[in-house]
């Protein structure tokens, strides 16, 4: 398949499926809680409705209030295009693309936090401060995880790093990356997406003053980011090197489904942590990735 055809195809599939994930999570939570819950496609309905709505903008906000979410969305989408899908290499793979992916996520953070700071609200300032602070440890964990894959495969390109069978540290890596996924996507126990108290939120509070199409872009971007982290986790842990493309795609889809259900179960069974203990949990995630790195190192030397 030519890249000109492949990139749009991938984008349509990935961006189209991304809003499914929050729907599945909510369904799992409802199921565990004994409720019927919102439909799985609820986010699609929300996005469609928001896209048709008008925009209410803070009197203090500059054009960056609209530009921030747009830049963040592009950054997340660009990051997900860099991911390979099993044996199907990324359409745009090069040495060092993994670093670009990590820094594109940082660019997305810059966009969303910039837009949040536009409103001059203390709530949003609070959310932004938490987001950028916790991201520091999450970044350390991601770099350690990526290093472990790089050391294990001797490569600095995502397509080669995610392909082979995982080493002895796969369990540690999975646990570490799953925790980072929860933190980066602002899920329980780091943040509660369902809370109605501004003081306790991270991600939701940053979007408090957004409405209409910009809010739709923020919500969709968040769903794509969740899909990206799930894909990264599944491909880093499962051995996808030797299987054929359709099988690999099926495995990946199943893996992402399992991760999503896992997120839903965590949200149903755990309460949100106090903010003071969030750094501790994140540090634990970092340490797990670090031990995965050490095991990758040890595995290669033996």
């Amino acid at each position: 398949m030519t890249p000109y055809l492949e990139v749009p195809l991938r984008l349509v599939v990935l961006l189209g499926l991304a809003p499914l994930l929050p729907g599945i999570i909510n369904k799992v939570k409802a199921w565990v809680g004994g409720r019927r819950g919102p439909p799985v496609l609820q986010l699609y309905y929300d996005l469609a409705r928001l896209w048709r709505k008008g925009v209410v903008m803070s009197t203090l906000a500059s054009p960056g209030f609209i530009a921030g979410p747009a830049v963040a969305w592009v950054a997340v989408v660009a990051a997900i295009v860099l991911l390979p899908l099993g044996p199907a290499e990324a359409p745009f793979a090069f040495r060092g693309d993994v670093l670009l992916m990590i820094y594109l996520l940082a660019l997305a953070r810059f966009g969303t936090t910039w837009a949040a700071m536009e409103t001059g609200s203390a709530f949003e300032g609070m959310g932004v401060a938490r987001e950028v602070s916790y991201a520091v440890i999450a970044e350390a964990a991601i770099i350690a995880a990526v290093l472990s894959l790089s050391v294990q495969t001797g490569s600095v390109s995502l397509s080669a790093m995610l392909a082979p069978a995982p080493g002895a540290g796969a369990v540690l890596l999975a646990a570490g990356l799953f925790t980072v996924l929860l933190a980066e996507n602002c899920r329980v126990p780091f943040d509660d997406p369902n809370t109605h108290l501004e003081l306790t939120m991270i991600h939701e509070v940053m979007a408090l003053d957004h409405s209409g199409p910009p809010l739709a872009v923020i919500l969709h971007g968040a769903a794509v980011k969740l899909l990206l982290f799930s894909l990264l986790l599944v491909e880093a842990v499962l051995p996808l090197g030797g299987v054929s493309a359709p099988v690999a795609l099926a495995i990946i889809a199943a893996g992402v489904f399992v991760v999503t259900i896992g997120v839903g179960l965590v949200e149903s069974l755990l309460a949100r942590f106090a903010f003071r203990s969030v750094p501790l949990l994140l540090t634990t995630a970092f340490l797990m990735c670090l031990f995965a790195l050490l095991m990758a190192w040890k595995g290669g030397a033996a």
């Binding site: 048709r52 209410v56 903008m57 009197t59 409103t119 408090l208 209409g212």
Partner: peptide, 12 residues
């Protein structure tokens, strides 16, 4: 955003 109609209001 500008086509959808933009309204200015105080920050929440």
């Amino acid at each position: 955003a500008s086509r959808a109609g933009m309204v200015r209001a105080v920050t929440w």
